[in-house]
Amino acid sequence: MSELPQSTIDAFHKGKFYIEQPKGVGHRSGIDAMLLGATVPLDATGKLADLGAGAGAAGLSVASRSGVETVLVEKTETMSEFARRTLALDQNRDFAQQCSVLNADVELSGLARLSAGLLDNHFDFVIMNPPFNETADRTTPDALKATAHAMSDNMFEKWIKTAAAILKARGQLSLIARPSSLQNILNACEGRFGQLEITNVFPRSDGDAIRVLVTGVKSSRARLTLRPPLIMHEQADGTSSGKGVYTQAADDLINGRKFL
Rank of each mutant, 00 (worst) to 15 (best):
L119Q: 10
I166A: 02
G171D: 04
H122P: 04
A143C: 04
A116V: 10
H122V: 01
N129C: 03
L175W: 11
L118V: 08
R170T: 03
A150R: 12
F123M: 12
F123A: 10
L186K: 03
A177M: 07
K158A: 08
N184P: 01
L182W: 07
A143Y: 09
D124R: 10
I176V: 07
A146F: 02
M128K: 02
N121Y: 10
L118M: 15
N184A: 11
N154A: 09
Q172F: 05
D153P: 01
Q172Y: 02
S152M: 09
A169Q: 15
Q183M: 09
R138Q: 08
P130F: 07
P131G: 03
L186G: 00
P179E: 00
F156P: 00
L144G: 01
L111I: 08
L167C: 05
Q172N: 09
S180M: 03
Q172H: 12
R178D: 00
M155A: 14
I127M: 00
P141G: 11
I127V: 07
D137I: 02
K161C: 10
Q172W: 06
E134C: 07
T140L: 07
A143P: 05
I166T: 03
P130D: 05
N121R: 12
N133S: 08
T140Y: 06
D120M: 03
T162F: 14
P141Y: 05
T162R: 10
L144A: 04
H122S: 14
S115P: 00
A169H: 15
L144S: 06
K161P: 00
P130L: 01
R178G: 00
I185S: 07
K168C: 12
Q172M: 15
L114Y: 14
M151V: 03
D142P: 02
M128I: 03
A164P: 11
L182D: 00
D120E: 08
S181K: 08
F123I: 05
Q172K: 15
W159T: 14
D124K: 08
